[in-house]
Amino acid sequence: MVSAVTVPLTREAPSPVGIRAQIRGVSHHYPTPGGGLLHVLDDVTFTVEPGECVALLGPSGCGKSTLLRLLAGLEQPGRGKIGADGVRIVGPDPSRLLVFQDPTLYPWRTVRQNVGLGLEARGIADRARRVDEVLHLVGLDGFADAYPNQLSGGMAQRAALARVLVNDPRLLLLDEPLGKLDALTRMTMQAELLRLWQNAGFTTLLVTHDVEEALLLAQRVLVFTPRPARIAASFEVGLDYPRHRDDRHFVELRRRILEVVGHSDIL
């Protein structure tokens, strides 16, 4: 979908690291307590190219997190197909990793043990160095042996990000990873995420409520309708990185996105 032109010059050609994520006519329902069905996703179709970064915007409760759970393989779609590189996703896999809306660290494990969990689960013995590297990457060097209840909200969120990054994912699913951070930490983390993505070359799907964040990070922005979520609009960003909030195109895009968003209710 994305032409080579929109891939920024600061990166090499689409890296083989990234997965092509395909969502084909996906609808999803949840049972309601009353015995009915809650229609969450409605015939959603889009493709994320290898190494691309796509942001998902949409009203609260429309089904963004659900879509990420489907891509992570934690659930099967009610209808439609979800694929990775042309292979149907039938279960979770360490190559497709989700950073949850909540950091959800394991409180009985130190930060180091939390971050090393994926390597431990897959029986990789030599993990200390890799874990330290990633902790350094997210700026948690001094906190390897801290327990989660000793971390601030932002640090917990960074630890959750590190727990995923240490596994070298090929598809990174981010569910409002910066939602709980203060404005300043948020800006630093946005720059960090950008740097990580540019260096590692994984495919990224970023759910956010923040139009500016979407425009700072993503090459494409999809806006969803209220539940059941359908794609209301798609915007190619086509700006070089690093982007600037006061850039004329940036401001114009933000205005156009907010217009669509405004029509589809509050974010």
Binding site: R69, A72, G73, L74, P92, D93, P94, R96, L97, L98, F100, D102, T104, Y106, L117, G118, A121, R122, R163, V164, N167
Partner: peptide, 13 residues
């Protein structure tokens, strides 16, 4: 918390 299982499963447990 079922999210504990979800996270571990995606990480390859």
């Amino acid at each position: 918390n079922s999210a504990y299982y979800d996270i571990a499963r995606t990480l390859g447990a």
